[in-house]
Every structure is written in C-alpha cells, then in structure tokens.
C-alpha cells in the first residue's frame, strides 16, 4: 500500500467515525420519556343555561348566543349534556336546525380555542395529549347520536387539526425535541387520523430518523433515486473500503492463527 492510499484510507475512516459520533450524539439527546398522561376526566356541576337563552335573538342567533356562559356551564365531554343543550336550543329557535348546530360547533371550536389559548400550556405535550383524548370522544359520539353526527365530526376534526398545527409550532420552537418519544407519539397519532404535521428535519436528521425507524429499504430506495452520481460513488467507496478493511483484518487473523 502506498502512502497516498493510506492517507485516503485514514481520511475516510475519520469521516465515518465523525459521522457515527454525530449520530450517537443526536441519539443521546433524545428524550425517551414515554410516560404519557392518561385521560383526565373532570365532572363539573351541572349549570342551567336556560335563563340565558331567554334573551336570545332568534333573528341573529350567531351573534346573540351566550358563548362564554355556554362553555363555562357545559360539561364539555358529556354526550347527554351536549344533546340536552342542542335540544334546548332547537326548542328556543325552532326550524333553524342548521344554524343552531353551527352555533354549538362555533362554541366548541372557535370560542373554546380562544379560551384555551389564554390559559393552556401548549408547550407541555401532555396538554396536547389531553386535547386528543377529549376530541376522540367526539369521534365516537357521532355513532351514538346520529342526529347530531355532523356536530361531533366537525368538533373532533377541528381539535385534531389544532393539535397538528400546534405540533408544527412546537417543532419550530424546539427543533431539538423532534425525536422525543412523546413528540413522535403525538405526530404518529395525528398522522393516523390523516392530519400529519410537518416536521422540519435536516438531511442528516432524516438519515438518523429513518435508521431509527428501521426504514433501511426506504433509505436504499432514496439513495438510488435521489442522490447524485458523485454521492453514489462516495457511498460505494465507503462500503468498499469498509469491506476491504474487514478482508485485510480477516487475512491477518488467518495468518496469525496459522502461525
């Protein structure tokens, strides 16, 4: 072996070592805490919204509806409670089913979101888990109360969309936490519901991520399809040099044993 080849060989090994050190560093920074908060169920005292509906202007229900009182009074995850208020509203403003439903939806999405934004700690991922738990109930309610299924569907989808957008903001603010178990669990939960949040990753992080997900076939596929000839050549050289070094080591070992 001449000295130029040896230098090149050492350089390549150094590059590989640095690359693996970087990967190990990245992996060691990951928070593997998987202690996901269970669903928190709170039951508030029932509150009679009926007196407040007396002042409802039937011509413009969307403006005159007491949204804040509604949100404060309602047991927000209780099917019967929601059904009762919907029926009550239908009795106050009859023959207006579409607008009545829309008002309840507005209260449980836009207005509730505004209230959440003032108080909730969205940087705590457990808060987002709680929202998903809560929203999941609405997904099930659509099968039990088919008359109001549109209401439950819309509320459910709104909050999953909300969590997905929050996860994107979280990722922008704390990019170093993108591989944390809780964050990944939330991402996959949203993705399974077709609300996949976009997580920004560098090219190196993508390689690490796909290795951690055992997506070796996918990596090889992308390697063939999306890399330049130069990179393909370099990777093949890396592999050849590695195999060659194993070969040389094996030969030396065989010689050693023969002696």
């Amino acid at each position: 072996m001449n000295s130029t080849f040896l230098k090149f060989f050492v350089f390549l090994l150094t590059c590989i070592s640095v690359f693996f050190i970087l990967i190990v560093y990245k992996i060691s920074k990951i928070n593997y805490d998987s202690d996901v908060q269970e669903e928190v169920v709170t039951m508030t005292n029932s509150f009679d919204i009926k007196p407040y509906l007396n002042s409802l202007k039937t011509t413009n229900i969307n403006e005159s509806f007491p949204f804040n009182i509604f949100i404060d009074s309602l047991e927000l995850s209780d099917l019967n409670s929601i059904k009762n208020v919907t029926a009550l509203l239908d009795s106050f403003v009859p023959n207006n089913r579409y607008e009545n439903t829309k008002v309840i939806v507005r209260a449980l999405t836009e207005k509730l979101e505004a209230k959440f934004n003032q108080t909730a700690q969205f940087e705590n991922l457990d808060t987002l888990f709680n929202i998903i738990h809560w929203a999941n109930r609405f997904q099930n309610y659509q099968y039990f109360d088919t008359e109001n299924s549109i209401l439950y569907t819309v509320v459910y989808k709104h909050w999953i969309n909300f969590v997905a957008n929050r996860l994107e903001l979280y990722n922008q603010k704390y990019p170093e936490h993108k591989f944390d178990t809780k964050f990944q669990l939330l991402i996959h939960t949203c993705a399974s519901k077709k609300f996949t949040p976009a997580v920004n990753m560098s090219k190196q992080e993508k390689v690490v991520y796909n290795i951690s997900q055992n997506k070796i076939a996918y990596l090889i596929n992308r390697l063939i399809l999306n890399t330049s000839l130069l990179l393909k050549f370099l990777i093949i050289t890396f592999i050849t040099v590695t195999l060659f070094s194993y070969y040389i080591t094996a030969l030396q070992l065989i010689k050693l044993f023969k002696k």
């Binding site: 989808k157 969309n161 997905a164 957008n165 949203c190 993705a191 519901k193 077709k194 609300f195 996949t196 949040p197 976009a198 997580v199 920004n200 990753m201 993508k206 991520y209 796909n210 997506k215 996918y218 992308r222």
Partner: peptide, 23 residues
C-alpha cells in the same frame, strides 16, 4: 412532509381525503 413520502397539506383526490390538516 417529513421523510419526503407523505403530503404536507390539505389534499383530496377524486373525493377521497388523503391529508386533512389545513395549514
């Protein structure tokens, strides 16, 4: 989106919802 193998934004193809997250 991440992994370059899924769609990032709201997408429906021939009435079939593929991605429902609306940016």
């Amino acid at each position: 989106g991440d992994g370059y193998n899924n769609l990032k934004n709201f997408t429906i193809e021939n009435g079939v919802v593929i991605q429902e997250k609306l940016d």
